[in-house]
């Protein structure tokens, strides 16, 4: 027994750990921490808080009802649609602007500082102004989503466009590629990993922009659903919305990661 216990780690070292080991070493601690946190939450609410405060058991109990409620689904759809629209607009305009900044010195001088400035500006402070310009409407929500997400894409695409290996451009020039074709057929695909990193960042920011503008504007959507239910003591219902938003955030990251692997098999990072 003693000798095998001593030999085991030495044998295991050069090979990757088997699945059961990985489960034990990474998944298990994570799971245990999560369960402890949930348990603490459950106990604390039961002991200290009034009955309408959400606790894990009440959230789980109400979840099926909320997730099949047409009003909730409509609110979710409205928010997701707005995020998708805003992201598409950000993606197109942001990519064009980023390419210009990355490949043209004049565009860089004219635009880069402003992009940095707006990227650093908290999106919430622009919301009162947007609501005056565009009204208490879905237009303001879209504007906020675009403002929240576009600069992340611009900055990443600009970085990518600057980092295009000179040999690609040289090959394109040698084969007499026109400038615009070089931009969209060489610079853009070469910048794709940067672009997707930007989109990843932009997705999270767009979601925040949507929810915050719904809070502020009281227009229909998942953010407003959460706000409304919190204020009317339906904390558990509100919490289902919160968890769903978190799931969308994670889901978007996973989707972008999957797209990277599926559509850019040539782009390989060291690990994972």
């Amino acid at each position: 027994m003693t000798s095998s216990a001593i030999n085991a780690p030495a044998d295991a070292a050069p090979e990757p750990p088997p699945l059961s080991d990985r489960l034990r070493q990474t998944v298990l601690p994570r799971l245990v921490t999560g369960l402890i946190l949930l348990l603490m939450w459950e106990i604390a609410v039961r002991l200290l808080a009034p009955p309408f405060v959400a606790r894990p058991s009440s959230v789980v109990a109400i979840a099926p009802k909320v997730l099949t409620d047409p009003k909730f689904l409509a609110a979710t759809g409205s928010t997701l649609l707005a995020v998708a629209e805003g992201l598409v607009i950000s993606l197109i305009l942001g990519t064009l602007t980023g390419l210009a900044i990355g490949r043209s010195r004049i565009a860089e001088k004219a635009l880069l500082q402003h992009v940095n400035f707006f990227y650093a500006m908290p999106m919430i402070v622009i919301l009162p102004l947007f609501s005056l310009w565009f009204g208490y409407s879905a237009a303001t929500r879209i504007a906020t989503i675009i403002f929240a997400s576009i600069f992340a894409i611009v900055m990443n695409v600009a970085d990518g466009a600057r980092a295009v290996p000179g040999e690609y451009l040289e090959v394109a020039r040698s084969f007499r590629a026109q400038r615009l074709r070089m931009l969209f057929e060489i610079v853009l695909p070469s910048s794709m990993p940067y672009l997707l990193a930007g989109v990843r960042l932009a997705g999270g920011r767009a979601l925040i922009g949507a929810v915050v503008s719904e809070f502020f504007l009281s227009i229909g959507g998942l953010g407003y659903y959460i706000l409304y239910n919190s204020r009317s003591y339906h904390h558990s219902e509100a919490f289902v919305g919160v968890l769903l938003l978190a799931a969308f955030g994670v889901g978007f990251e996973v989707l972008v990661g999957w797209c990277t692997r599926r559509f850019m098999p040539w782009y390989r990072r060291g690990a994972n």
């Binding site: 040999e167 690609y168 040289e170 090959v171 040698s174 084969f175 007499r176 060489i186 695909p189 070469s190 794709m192 850019m264 040539w266 782009y267």
Partner: peptide
């Protein structure tokens, strides 16, 4: 046109 180059580092587009 009519002149083509082969590069030391291949210069293939990875995508």
């Amino acid at each position: 046109a009519g002149v083509a180059m082969v590069f030391q580092h291949f210069g293939l587009f990875p995508w």
